[in-house]
Design a protein around this nucleic acid. Structure first.
Length: 855
RNA sequence: GCCCCUGUGGCGGAACUGGUAGACGCGCUGGAUUCAAAAUCCAGUUCCCGUAAGGGAGUGCGAGUUCGAUUCUCGCUGGGGGCACCA
């Protein structure tokens, strides 16, 4: 028998599917639709294993749902704007557009070799004007709707390169290329009003019942609605006051200081006449703009000359600090500190020798004294005049009432969620379609002039924004008054493009924006698949965009993704040269085993140390190239391995042994099913009248497997589905004999195997299907259904425990009387020995599961 | 620092809603086949004691709830993701 030739078979079926337009989907009101989408890739140049995993999962879902009768939309595109293209331009002198388009072409070929069931007619690339012209129009509509506005905001500024840095370009507070300490700088930037929908985005999470709980929780924490109060502290000797936001107005009598952000207007004002403060503020600004850097830094404060008067006692003055942990972006950029009941305030108070006054006494009577830990629980208010004796909730209300009466504060709801800053001072992005005119202000580019495209002749040698220093591009007449004006030189954040691409896939012609009818038919995405790293930002921005587009009349849908699956990362062991101290990283293909089974380098035999398994990354060199794997084992084997071992949501460990195991299985089903004697046998005829016991048992297994695999695919338990199919293969391999009943059963088993494995290994499944005599495509064949009569069992094995320890098992009829089960269990020799003749105190019988004898 | 997730044999993992821990695969051991090897097929494989029957331990660590905990609660610890300009 011929060995399975995956090279010819995979190419053959890919061509046949393409010729048949097998995966092209169009609106069809008669059929239920199913939209499955994987997060589109950034065109970095080559696909990596993370892509292979994500797109395999998506393809299994798409092919399975298609077999189940759904009109499946399964598109693919390119998230084509972004920083790496500009870095490539800087390093390799390639134009970002050329680099990006070549990468797309290469990656498209790689994806096609995987046999993915995409409707390629719908392919889009976000860097093409046909795509981004639509989002420029959307932005203008957002402007009209009051959903976009401009204000000043802080950026990381590299003083040497004279350019804005992304957070990933800031390493330990310094610019990645210049090494110069980064500064914070204010810049006028465009924002989208995501906070308008804060409550809706938060509340609707409850309805997203096909999203992982952890993602919904992360989003809820990100939005973080908090109810509290603004409290006005008048400032001694000044006419203005300091507004702070707090969620704990009940602890106001425990206040011992106020603190303001380093970039708070008051801090900046004081710094003008206080050089030491100016130095402190400058040091804070070196921490960059990332919250992680700010929060992880040691808490420090600078004591100012300001004194804040307590709202409930005018003679009580609190010191005012400028502190590096207070964020200008949250609340009012100022806090009051109650060290007894907030851990961060306590740490700060201990460091600067401030009072710690407990005002909440724990209900458990453990005393109100504060040691090294703040008490944040509920309790009885003490030391608090009119609030003393109340519980925390009542005291919060009482404090707010009092603040309102004194006209020095009111209840307030704030969100951690901030408006989305979409301005980027970069070239390779979608231009913001606005013109600045000295007399008319920010003027939208008139719609007939869209799209605003990027100039091709740009210089990446010069630092700063290439659009800004282009000689002619930005100089245009004002559309209103015709006087000389300047284009906006910012481009959009690339999250802008990825916040609506899933709707545009509804259109089959990329130069035409999706129609309302297309969006109404296809949206929402029924199943979205991608990495957990996008759990917050991309998904939240997309949810916002969908609402904004609905408000602007583009759509009538609130939530873009009805179902979400977040897949884990692909990991691999790391290797280093052991012959030198901290030797360099080695690629897996540079490492082999010598005769003593020790790890050595290929070629020179030098020793190698294996490190722990980590996410595949170029920097660690622990990468395996999908193209090489597909060339060696074929797409089906690669796809099988991607799904075999790990649940989709967990990390996957790539091993040579694992891919070899998948390869063996590919050959195993081929050897089993593709025997010449089956090639010519007729397509399954009527079933024989009777089956012998062995056939009957195999039939049960086949139907059981259909039911289990169907349930597993429905729940995205691909690894279990694969295990069930392998079990079926083992069972079928043991069924021999040529009698009519056995031959029929075996053939039925083979056909079922081909059908069940088809979503995972579509090429070999199609090949086997045709070898079994079918003239139609397996990809056009309906999913098999299990015959209920084969699924029910008449006996069941129960576990018998004594005091919770397993002492034996008994086979009993299903749903047997509890009394009989108990008697049979107690009669077991092993149970009698374990009880030692002592009469059981009670016997717990869980029907069809377990009998527990309790002594 | 804050938020979220995760830890089961030599390895990847399974165990549905608290009910026989280790399905399936890898690896390993023994056997068959072969001139030999590869490939393939068969059997075994959590650890400890025992020829066996059987017994003991066991799901990161420590407690708790329960007749019964991988599953629920609390604390600790290792690993990972996110933290708003990487995508």
């Amino acid at each position: 028998m011929d060995r399975y030739n995956f090279k010819t078979a995979e190419a053959k079926w890919q061509n046949i599917w393409a010729e048949h337009g097998s995966f092209e989907a169009d609106e069809d009101p008669e059929r239920p639709k199913y939209y499955v989408l994987e997060m589109f890739p950034y065109p970095s140049g080559r696909i990596h294993m993370g892509h292979v995993r994500c797109y395999t999962i998506g393809d299994v879902v798409a092919r399975y749902k298609r077999a189940c009768g759904f009109n499946v939309l399964h598109p693919m595109g390119w998230d084509a704007f972004g920083l790496p293209a500009e870095n490539a331009a800087f390093e390799n002198k390639v134009h970002p557009a050329k680099w990006t388009r070549e990468n797309i072409a290469a990656m498209r070929d790689q994806l096609k070799s995987m046999g993915l069931s995409y409707d390629w007619r719908r392919e889009l690339a976000t860097c093409e004007p046909e795509y981004f012209r639509h989002e420029q129009k959307m932005f203008l509509d957002f402007l009209k709707a009051g959903l976009a506005y401009k204000r000043e905001s802080w950026v990381n500024w590299d003083p040497v390169e004279q350019t804005v840095l992304a957070n990933e370009q800031v390493i330990d507070g310094c610019g990645w290329r210049s090494g110069a300490p980064v500064e914070r700088r204010l810049l006028a930037q465009w924002f989208l009003k995501i906070t308008k929908y804060a409550d809706d985005l938060l509340e609707t999470l409850a309805e997203l019942d096909r999203w992982p709980d952890q993602v919904r929780l992360m989003q809820a924490n990100w939005i973080n609605r908090s109810e509290g109060a603004t409290v006005g502290f008048s400032l001694a000797g000044r006419t203005d006051s300091l507004d702070v936001f707090t969620t704990r107005p009940d602890t106001l009598f425990g206040a011992s200081f106020c603190a303001i952000a380093a970039n708070h207007p008051l801090a900046l004002e004081l710094a003008e006449s206080d050089p030491e403060l100016a130095t402190f503020i400058e040091r804070c600004s070196r921490m960059g703009t990332s919250e992680a850097a700010i929060e992880a830094a040691e808490k420090e404060g600078y004591l100012t000359a300001l004194r804040a008067c307590h709202p409930f006692s005018k003679n009580w003055e609190l010191p005012v600090y400028v502190a590096n942990f207070v964020l200008m972006e949250y609340g009012t950029g100022a806090i009051f500190g109650c060290p007894a009941h907030d851990q961060r305030d306590l740490d700060f108070a201990r460091k600067y020798g401030l009072d710690v006054v407990p005002v909440v006494a724990p209900n458990d009577g453990s005393g109100a004294e504060i040691g090294s830990e703040a008490f944040t629980g509920d309790g009885e208010i003490i030391n608090s005049e009119f609030m003393t004796g109340l519980d925390v909730e009542a005291a919060k209300r009482r404090a707010i009432d009092e603040l309102e009466r004194l006209n020095s504060g009111q209840s307030k709801i704030t969100y951690r969620l901030r408006d989305w800053g979409v301005s980027r001072q970069r070239y390779w992005g979608c231009p913001v379609p606005v013109i600045h005119c000295e007399s008319c202000g920010n003027v939208p580019v008139p719609e007939p002039e869209l799209p605003v495209t990027l100039p091709d002749d740009v210089d990446f040698e010069q630092s700063g924004n290439p659009l800004d220093h282009h000689p002619t591009w930005k100089h245009v007449p004002c559309p209103v008054c015709n006087k000389p004006a300047e284009r906006e030189t910012d481009t959009f954040d690339t999250f802008f493009e990825s916040s609506w691409y899933f709707v545009q896939f509804g259109s089959t012609e990329q130069e035409r924006i999706f129609s309302r009818a297309e969006a109404d038919y296809w949206m929402p995405v029924d199943q979205y698949i991608g990495g957990i790293e996008h759990a917050i930002l991309h998904l939240l921005y997309s949810r916002f965009f969908t609402r904004a587009l609905t408000d602007c009349g583009y759509l009538d849908v609130k939530e873009p993704f009805a179902g979400l699956l977040t897949q884990g990362m692909v990991c691999h062991e790391t290797y280093r040269d052991a012959s030198e101290e901290m030797g360099g990283w080695l690629f897996p293909e540079q490492v082999t085993r010598d005769s003593d089974n020790k790890l050595v380098q290929v070629g020179n035999g030098r020793p190698v140390v294996a490190g722990r398994s980590e996410k595949m990354s170029k920097s660690r060199k622990n990468v395996v190239d999908p193209e090489l794997i597909i060339a060696t084992y074929g797409a089906d084997t690669a796809r099988l391995f991607m799904l075999s071992d790990s649940p989709a949501a967990r990390d996957l460990e790539w091993t040579d042994a694992g891919i070899e195991g998948a390869w063996r299985y590919t050959n195993r089903i081929w050897r089993m099913i593709a025997k010449p004697e089956f090639h010519l046998s007729p397509v399954t005829g009527d079933a024989p009248e009777t089956f012998d016991d062995a056939s009957e048992e195999v039939l049960r297994k086949i139907h059981r497997t259909i039911a289990d695999v169907t349930a597993d695919f429905d729940a995205f338990r691909f690894n279990r589905a694969v295990a069930r199919i392998r079990e079926l293969t083992n069972t079928l391999a043991n069924l021999d004999g040529d009698s009519a009943d056995r031959a029929w059963t075996r053939r039925f088993g083979f056909e079922t195997t081909a059908q069940l494995i088809a979503p995972v290994m579509p090429h070999i499944a199609e090949e086997l299907w045709s070898l079994l005599g079918h003239k139609s495509l397996l990809s056009d064949t309906a999913w098999p259904s299990a015959d209920e009569t084969y699924l029910s069992e008449d006996t069941v094995t129960l576990a018998v425990q004594v005091n919770g320890k397993l002492r034996g098992t008994i086979d009993l009829p299903v749903d047997v009387d509890k009394q009989i089960a108990e008697e049979r269990a107690l009669a077991l020799e092993n149970v009698a020995r374990a009880t030692g003749g002592i009469a059981p105190r009670k016997v717990i019988v869980v029907p069809n599961k377990v009998i527990n004898v309790v002594l």
